[in-house]
Write a protein that binds this DNA or RNA. Sequence first.
DNA 1: ACGACTTGCAACGATAATGATGCAAGTCGG
DNA 2: CCGACTTGCATCATTATCGTTGCAAGTCGT
Lengths: 190, 190
Amino acid sequence: MSGTTRALRSDAERTVRTILEAAERVLSRNPAASMEQIAEAAGVARTTVHRRFASREALVEAMARWATQQFAEAVDAACPENAPPLVALYQVTANVLRVKIDWGFTMRVMDADPEAGKVYADIAERCERLLIRARDAGVLRADADLDWSRRVFYALLHEAAACRDGDPDALATQVVDTLLRGVGTSRGLS
Amino acid sequence: MSGTTRALRSDAERTVRTILEAAERVLSRNPAASMEQIAEAAGVARTTVHRRFASREALVEAMARWATQQFAEAVDAACPENAPPLVALYQVTANVLRVKIDWGFTMRVMDADPEAGKVYADIAERCERLLIRARDAGVLRADADLDWSRRVFYALLHEAAACRDGDPDALATQVVDTLLRGVGTSRGLS
DNA sequence: ACGACTTGCAACGATAATGATGCAAGTCGG
DNA sequence: CCGACTTGCATCATTATCGTTGCAAGTCGT
């Protein structure tokens, strides 16, 4: 019985995953896409989508929860509170990029869901703390605006995730390098 | 007759402008907002919107054209092909910010319209040339990836436009500074 | 082969947005 | 005051999407 249940639930969950991934794919191109289009992209009937997710809202909520979990795991794996700031920064970047490349749309609209929004805010705070550590370690400028720095960091992550080519590690290097040094020379500025 | 025509057309165009601005305001908060909501925000009846714009698509197209014109003028005013690269960079940033703060939504979805898309691509090319001049002048690093630099520039503009507070000049200084120097110190990087 | 479960298909009702129209009322220049 | 023009309001048909349901067919473990 447990075997049966496990097998059946495995099937069901595979379908759910397929739908979630298709939804991400379709909605990232057209946020106003219909359930029909999502179902078609997932290779299932529209009714199947409605059986798994009571409403469109429930679908995006499920997407948000899933992406949130991936997001949090990506951050956790980088040990942003313990590792040396520069190392943590790089690790966070690489790990988050891997998630964001596949879940860009969901991560942009995640804050709508209250549950995901909490995790999102929590991660922002952890990011803030990491930046403080980085500043104290002399990695960030002493006069750096932490909120602005964090938002630039997010923006660079977003931009790097838009290049779907190249491996996450190379992109992470580019992101951290640009975040800390910019793209200019040292000359010519006040 | 010409006086009458001018006065009447002035009224009509004032209404059109009001609708366009309301649409930007509403759609930036909710891209799926209905014509009803847009009309309400503009303080006119829904039918009036439909009289001015045959369809929703036509409305967005008009928004795209208008924002495109503002965008192009903002770039032109900065003389990006003649002024010293650093000066031009700053001027472009400040001018574009002024537009982007009020037309953020439209400028994000502009590429849908073919007409606006052409101007958009043209501006991207002018930006690219400005960056080349900046690199040749030693403002940008010699090994800087120009496409990546441009996209970082765009991303910073986008982020700065999200702060609706603070004057565009101060924001422009921050954007250019971050673009060229980043937020880190010179130490601690390879 | 049996049973539990899932899926596709076809069809349904409900709801909301869209776009069009006729008419009365209003403004404004001449 | 007249005429051109625009707007608001009420109303209409059309369409798309949504969410639900019943039923037949299929899979998979036992």
